[in-house]
Design a binder for these strands. Structure first.
Length: 572
DNA sequence: CCTCCCCAGAGGCATTCAGTTCCCTGAAT
């Protein structure tokens, strides 16, 4: 992964944030924001580019290229450092509170001297905020709720950040000569939505040099604890990583134990006890003699307990033990089962890559069909028109000739208006191969209205997939309120699929709702919602979420062959 | 700040709506 691009983009974005607090030219700020996204999504590593190379990045000109070059050479950007010195870090933290932007953050800082989230919360308790112009009781309320939402997500990070770091560490340790096996465990292996800390497991007879290599990794900032069995470090992004080294003969039991969940492990240990065995992270033992029975692989451990191997994504004590005992574990959907992707964007709207680039990336994934679904006109900021959409359709049709093995579908992502209607009339909609429809506005409708809205959308014969149904943004925006069972029944009845959006901050539908929906006969579409080439990799998180919802390939319409999919869509 | 291209300087730069407060900010992808 191009880590330098991410860091450079982050610095440029920070520059934009800082300028929006100090108050600069709005257009300049927007230029930085746009460039930050372009840099993050640029396929070439910026650390290897000179000034001329940098200027080839779309929306990057002389000024921004120089700043990126500054970063490549010095590791930071001078202007960012200067602004950081002017504005306390806490004031920037204030702008991360939903509903509190740069203007309001600056106001509380300048008028009341508030420069941290706790101070702000206290000022609200004391009623000091409502005297400022532009602030009222409702504003106070919204800020408090925003703070609460942030605190709920706490120190946990999104799954992509944890996965990238874990992959790097596992790769680095696997290369160490003393390491026989290495893998990540914990909530990341179970594909939970957010990750509190990363658990890495290594098998070796010689732990000491491994621990040394681990603490010497470049992104390690602090060593919290270090012994021969366990070492804990903190990394540059604040994430804690625990490394445990076990003897090779304990690998299976250790992997099982450190993968969890705790509730699942309690169940497996109970089964062991009832069978006269003892299960610990060091192995499965005979309770009386203490003799080691098995432990080299997880499969052995489960088998000796009378269970088939249980996929980590099911290990939540959510009925997987019972299903395993009955021999009825689902055959979970995998990334390899997917034949297509039904939701993606190009630079015609807010995507970063061209149509041609996105299609090439889809071909590289080995997909058999791929839908381009740019935004529709009612998302006004995207400035979509009928003419642009039809012109894109011509481009898609023309591009098809280059891809004999990949069927291109021309679609759109519609907006479900508050009344449940969508952007275009039936005639225009009939021209698309596939229509995703999503809620992008009026998130706070009450339950009855929201339910009606979704049901209406499902009943539209041209709507094939409901995109990111709960519209939540993890740690930022709560899910919308709807009577989900009623929505699911409508989706099942009308043959409307529900999306599992693979974006790490969405993962929407969430796993618990997927399980409820599948029981009511709903079908699903696991999509990337890709806005850049790199987003295609997110599909693994959507699949992980689907697995946590117990989905089989048959439940997922984009595992189906194209003709079956077309029959389902009714657009053949 | 970028693009364009009369290579210096003009023209362009997502836009709209909801919410809250009283005119403006923040959110929407």
């Amino acid at each position: 992964m191009a880590r330098a691009n991410d860091e450079a983009a982050e610095l440029i974005q920070e520059l934009a944030d800082l300028l929006s607090i100090t108050g600069g030219d709005a257009f300049k700020i927007r230029a930085y924001e746009k460039a930050a996204r372009a840099i993050a999504g640029y396929p070439e590593d910026v650390s290897g580019l000179d000034l001329a190379g940098l200027k080839k990045i779309p929306t990057v000109g002389e000024a921004i290229a120089k700043k990126v070059l500054d970063y490549t050479i010095t590791g930071t950007i001078r202007q960012v450092e200067e602004l950081r010195a002017q504005i306390p870090a806490g004031v920037r933290a204030l702008t991360t509170i939903p509903t509190l932007g740069p203007k309001k953050a600056l106001a509380v800082y300048e008028e009341l001297g508030i420069s941290s989230v706790p101070e702000l919360a206290q000022a609200i308790q004391e009623g000091r905020l409502r005297d400022l112009k532009g602030f009222g009781a409702k504003t106070e309320d919204n800020i408090l709720r925003g703070i609460e939402l942030m605190q709920q997500s706490g120190e946990r990070v999104l799954i992509d950040a944890a996965a990238d770091l874990a992959d790097e560490i596992v790769a680095a340790l696997t290369a160490h000569p003393a390491v026989q096996r290495c893998a990540h465990a914990g909530s990341l292996r179970r594909m939970r939505e957010t990750i509190g800390d990363i658990d890495i497991l290594a098998a070796s007879t010689d732990p000491h040099p491994i621990m040394e290599a681990f603490t010497a990794l470049p992104y390690v900032t602090d060593v919290i604890a270090s012994g021969d069995k366990k070492t804990s470090v903190r990394t540059t992004r604040g994430l804690q990583v625990d490394l445990r080294v076990v003897p090779p003969e304990s690998w299976g039991a250790a992997l099982q134990y450190f993968t969890g969940s705790q509730a699942h492990n309690i169940r497996t240990r109970e089964i062991a006890v009832r069978a006269g065995l003892k299960l610990s992270e060091y192995g499965l033992f005979d309770a009386e003699s203490g003799a080691l029975i098995v432990s080299e692989t997880e499969e052995e451990v489960y088998a000796r307990l009378g269970l088939p191997w249980i996929p980590p994504t099911l290990r939540e004590d959510g009925g997987e033990i019972e299903a395993a005992l009955r021999g009825e574990l689902p055959r979970l959907v995998t990334v390899d089962d997917l034949k297509g992707d039904l939701h993606s964007h190009t630079d015609l709207t807010d995507g970063l890559a061209t149509l041609e680039e996105m299609v090439e990336a889809a071909a590289a994934r080995g997909l058999e069909y791929y839908a381009i679904t740019d935004h529709a006109p009612n998302l006004f900021m995207q400035r979509m028109t009928d003419e642009k959409m039809l012109a894109q359709r011509e481009q898609v049709r023309a591009l098809q000739a280059k891809y004999p093995d990949l069927t291109l579908l021309h679609g759109t992502e519609l907006n479900i208006n508050p009344d449940g209607e969508v952007d275009w009339d039936a005639d225009f909609l009939a021209g698309f191969d596939v229509c995703v429809a999503s809620v992008h506005s009026a998130f706070t409708q009450d339950k009855a209205e929201m339910t009606r809205r979704f049901v209406r959308a499902c009943e539209n014969p041209h709507v094939h997939v409901i995109g990111h149904p709960t519209a939540r943004l993890i740690g930022k925006r709560p899910p919308v309120d709807a009577d989900w069972d009623e929505v699911f029944r409508a989706a099942a009845r009308t043959g409307t699929a529900l999306e599992i959006d693979s974006f790490p901050d969405r993962l929407d539908l969430p796993a618990d709702l997927i399980r409820r929906a599948v029981r009511l006969g709903v079908k699903f579409s696991i999509d990337t919602d890709a806005h850049a080439l790199g987003h295609h990799r997110n599909i693994r998180f959507g699949v992980g979420t689907a697995q946590r919802g117990w989905l089989t390939p048959d439940d997922v319409i984009n595992t189906w062959p194209l003709d079956r999919l077309r029959a389902f869509l009714g657009t053949s």
